[in-house]
Simulated assay, not measured.
Amino acid sequence: MDTPAPTPVMVVSGATGGMGSAVVEEIARSGATVALLGRNEKRLDRTRRSIQNRIGDAGRLVTYETDINSTASVDSFAARLMADLGRVDGLVHSAGDGPLAPLAETDDAMWQSTFNGKLMGAVRLARALAGPMASSGGGSMVMISGVFRKDPDPLFPVNSAINAALAVFAKSVSKDLGRSGIRVNVLDPGAVRTPLWDEIAKAIGERSGATAEEISAHVAAQSPLGTLAEPSDVAHTVGYLLSPAARHLTGAAITLDGGASAGL
């Protein structure tokens, strides 16, 4: 009799955010066990219960209060994960965002906060999980970055620089981790209709005398498809990158912006 394949275990940072929670739901529906990471235990539990109610028995959700800004916290999480579940097959790093601020309005704290969460958070998680993932037979890491990586914006110099650094990190470690059967890719969404986008659109509008709705409509109009992305668009793409269907795809940066950005 064939031994049944083990249930895959996936880790999602920033799991309580608009994109992160959509990713959790997508991969849980595939039957995976998903570990939700975040710094607020109550928000994690609310997100877990909400998603579990929607998916029923399709997948199992577990939460780990973890601060990706801390090496000790990330390493402790990785040890607990292996003690609890015994394996890890995928990582989605969707935590971290930067300020809307042109250069003259930025300060060192803005740069350091985004660097520590978005870039170093990815470094800490990848470093802590690469060994366990290799021991589990390999897997996939997906770093969610953003279109400012290849199409920098003067209102977002912090995000633009950190996104580019995250892609370089992913590309470099993909050459190393691939030898252990671990794929590493970057996903660059454009504007995604989430509560965070609503805040950004409002802030941009306040600078230009427009409403958040007008800003959203303007941004959507820049896309040949004429729409903003939905969180589910991000989640579906992440699901593909985690899956065996993407077995020969690593070291890539994929843009998901409806064709809006000018960069190749």
Score class of each variant (00 low, 15 high):
residue 1 M to Q: 01
residue 165 A to R: 05
residue 6 P to H: 13
residue 74 V to W: 10
residue 214 E to T: 12
residue 3 T to P: 00
residue 186 V to E: 10
residue 261 S to H: 07
residue 245 A to S: 14
residue 46 R to Y: 08
residue 121 G to H: 04
residue 132 P to C: 01
residue 16 T to E: 15
residue 113 S to I: 04
residue 205 G to S: 02
residue 102 P to N: 06
residue 255 T to L: 12
residue 256 L to T: 06
residue 160 S to A: 14
residue 83 A to D: 14
residue 45 D to E: 14
residue 254 I to N: 04
residue 35 A to I: 11
residue 67 D to Q: 00
residue 207 R to N: 09
residue 112 Q to R: 15
residue 113 S to L: 04
residue 241 L to W: 03
residue 195 P to C: 11
residue 261 S to D: 04
residue 85 L to D: 02
residue 187 L to H: 04
residue 261 S to E: 02
residue 191 A to V: 07
residue 74 V to E: 12
residue 62 V to L: 13
residue 94 S to E: 01
residue 261 S to R: 13
residue 135 S to G: 11
residue 16 T to C: 15
residue 126 A to R: 00
residue 242 L to I: 07
residue 51 I to S: 02
residue 135 S to A: 15
residue 104 A to V: 05
residue 234 V to N: 12
residue 45 D to G: 11
residue 238 V to P: 02
residue 16 T to R: 15
residue 188 D to S: 06
residue 188 D to V: 00
residue 186 V to C: 15
residue 227 T to K: 04
residue 187 L to F: 05
residue 73 S to Y: 12
residue 254 I to F: 15
residue 240 Y to K: 08
residue 251 G to Y: 05
residue 223 S to Q: 02
residue 145 S to N: 13
residue 99 P to E: 07
residue 177 L to V: 10
residue 44 L to A: 02
residue 164 A to V: 02
residue 218 H to Q: 04
residue 65 E to N: 00
residue 227 T to W: 08
residue 229 A to Y: 01
residue 198 D to M: 06
residue 211 T to C: 10
residue 122 A to C: 09
residue 131 G to L: 09
residue 236 H to W: 03
residue 111 W to Y: 13
residue 205 G to C: 12
residue 51 I to F: 03
residue 246 A to S: 10
residue 77 F to T: 03
residue 11 V to L: 14
residue 5 A to N: 07
residue 205 G to A: 05
residue 249 L to Q: 05
residue 42 K to L: 09
residue 133 M to D: 11
residue 85 L to P: 05
residue 141 M to T: 05
residue 256 L to A: 08
residue 155 L to N: 14
residue 6 P to A: 14
residue 136 S to K: 01
residue 43 R to D: 07
residue 104 A to T: 12
residue 69 N to V: 01
residue 255 T to H: 06
residue 103 L to D: 08
residue 143 M to P: 03
residue 249 L to D: 01
residue 12 V to A: 14
residue 28 A to V: 02
residue 118 K to M: 14
residue 148 F to I: 04
residue 261 S to I: 13
residue 67 D to I: 04
residue 62 V to P: 05
residue 124 R to N: 09
residue 115 F to Q: 07
residue 215 I to V: 15
residue 80 R to L: 03
residue 74 V to N: 04
residue 176 D to N: 07
residue 43 R to G: 14
residue 248 H to M: 05
residue 108 D to K: 11
residue 34 V to N: 03
residue 62 V to D: 08
residue 200 I to D: 02
residue 209 G to E: 11
residue 197 W to L: 15
residue 195 P to F: 13
residue 216 S to H: 11
residue 32 A to E: 13
residue 61 L to T: 01
residue 96 G to M: 10
residue 151 D to A: 15
residue 70 S to L: 08
residue 38 G to R: 12
residue 80 R to K: 11
residue 187 L to S: 09
residue 53 N to G: 13
residue 209 G to D: 03
residue 141 M to K: 09
residue 180 S to D: 13
residue 212 A to R: 01
residue 111 W to T: 10
residue 156 F to P: 06
residue 211 T to N: 03
residue 174 S to I: 06
residue 217 A to G: 11
